[in-house]
Structure formats: C-alpha cells, structure tokens
Amino acid sequence: MSQTKNHVPGEVGIWVFILGDMLVFGLFFLVFVYYRGLDVELYRQSQAALNQHYGAFNTLLLLASSWFVVMAVENARAASGKQAAKLFSLALLCGAGFGAVKFIEYSEKLAAGITITSNDFFMYYYIFTGLHLLHVVIGMGVLTFLIIKARSPQFQASDMVLVESGASFWHLVDLLWIILFPLLYLMK
C-alpha cells in the first residue's frame, strides 16, 4: 500500500455520496438516542427481544468482507486481477451471508408478531436496518461489477479509480453497521 500523500481513494465524487450518507446516518443515530432517552424502559424491554448473536455474527461477516476487499484492492494494485476477483467474490459471499442472516432475523421477528408498528423501538429497528440492508444490496451490486472488471483481461491501472470507489462504498456499509449494532442490540 505504498501510496503517495494526498491521494483521494477512488473518484472525488463518490466521497460526496459517502460523506452525505455518513451525515444522514449520523442524524439517524442521534434521533434514535434522543427518542430513546424519552422512554428508556420501553427501549430496554424491546431490545431484549433482539437476538444479539445474529447481530454479532453479522458484524463479523461485514468485518471479514471489508478485510477481503482491502486485500482485493492491494492485489488489483499489484495488477493481479484474477486474485482480486477471487477476494471480491469472498466479500460478496459475506455480504450474501449478511443478507441471509437478516432475512432469518426478520422472519423470526415477524413470526413473533413484532412489526414496524409494534412500538417506537421496532420502528427504528426495521427502518434503520432496512435502509442499511438496502446499502448492502447496492454494495453487492458494486462488488459484482468489480469482480467482472477485475476478471477482464483488459484490466489496467486506470481502472483502479473504479476499484477504489467501489471498495470505499463497501467499507461505508461496514462502517454504518459498526454503530447500528451497539446502538440497537447492545446499548444499555
């Protein structure tokens, strides 16, 4: 990773989106904590209905996927596109695993009669994790695109901007979950 100083990862434009998203999710987090403060007991009781293991497992999946992406970017820089494609595929697999776990988790909650209108806590739970899941799905699309790019024989150094942009977006997906997890599942 011998990068010169003052190198913006990916194209500048993607950072408009990433920072914009961080700003908005930041606001979401604050809204949640503020309203939680108005009715702490309800939030504590509702939180007890969540399965921390699903959340923790998903945290690990996203960390692993982020790490695969980091290695993929390094490989892409070293012009070994094939290896990069393999690592991106592993990251994609982790993303799919995250989606599967979320699917199981949602169906369990719904089977137990817990929906978006159950109470305020579950309203935030469904909306925030749903929006995050949307990011995961978009990110998986981005990863698929990167896999195709990295596999093509014409893969070249000028494609690095695309690779870095896509990778940065995937890390954003990981980053948002790192706060959502303690906020929704663990906070006492």
């Binding site: 434009g13 408009v16 989106f17 914009g20 978006i116 209108t117 309203m123 909306i127």
Partner: peptide, 25 residues
C-alpha cells in the same frame, strides 16, 4: 456536468424517500 454532481443527485434522490413513511405515523 462534473461527476460529483451525479453522486449528489443520487444522494438527494435517496433522501427524499423517507417521506413515503408518513402514512404510518
């Protein structure tokens, strides 16, 4: 147009979506 404006517009598009939730609250 500069490319960042493309990202900006998509970001704006997504942020308009939560308006759709007002029917529930």
């Amino acid at each position: 147009f500069p490319r960042w404006l493309g990202y900006f517009n998509i970001w704006v598009a997504i942020l308009l979506v939560p308006g759709g939730l007002i029917t529930f609250f």
